[in-house]
Write a protein that binds this DNA or RNA. Structure first.
Lengths: 96, 96
DNA sequence: CCGAATGTACGCCATTGGCGCCCAATTGTC
DNA sequence: GACAATTGGGCGCCAATGGCGTACATTCGG
């Protein structure tokens, strides 16, 4: 069996799974749209540095999110949602 | 130069950097101890499923954290901290 | 003019997120 | 007691993210 042959078969298997309505492992389909980190931060009138410190997120990670180089994963997206809606409460909760 | 030789040299370079107090790229040193997800969840008297749903974290991720198979990354740790201290406020914030 | 602060951009790589699957333990419900 | 449902532990797999470094552009106050 050639390498090409194996790859072709794998592709077909995935296609079949798709057709069956099953999910293909390793294929992530983003359902919810990405939270706009920059908008959230700006609405709080904070620099990236202060925002990062206030919510205990590494500065580099904030930068990645704002530049759309990385998408916040599910827990991070939830966290950002919480921050966007109750900035003060969350900041207090993580402080100290 | 053999493969083993190169690897040995790289290891020595890292050791030198360590000795110099510099940080070695790619080597993560966890500073804060891992949050005890199970304890947090239990104190809220929720099943893994409800906890996951309430805070919008995939069930599999909760399992990984509780079984210590994965460590929550920095944003996740901050989120858990917020949850631990202001469970109701955070739950309300992420709901809807 | 220059240094500090802020933010954009990108490389690198170990670790995590996220998914599926299976199985044991616990908790109902008849 | 028997049976089904819920809960949670354990593990393999893979792409994507987290985290850190470095360099460069822009803004701003002295």
């Amino acid at each position: 069996m050639s390498k090409f042959g194996r790859e072709l078969i794998d592709s077909l298997k995935q296609a079949v799974k798709h057709a069956e309505g099953r999910k293909v492992a390793g294929m992530r389909v983003t359902v919810v749209e990405a939270p706009d980190v920059k908008a959230i931060r700006r609405s709080l009138r904070m620099s990236q540095q202060r925002f990062a410190a206030s919510y205990r997120i590494p500065l580099a990670t904030i930068k990645n999110w704002e530049q759309k180089r990385r998408m916040p994963d599910a827990p991070a997206a939830a966290y950002l949602r919480a921050i966007a809606r109750k900035p003060k409460e969350v900041a207090e909760a993580v402080a100290g």
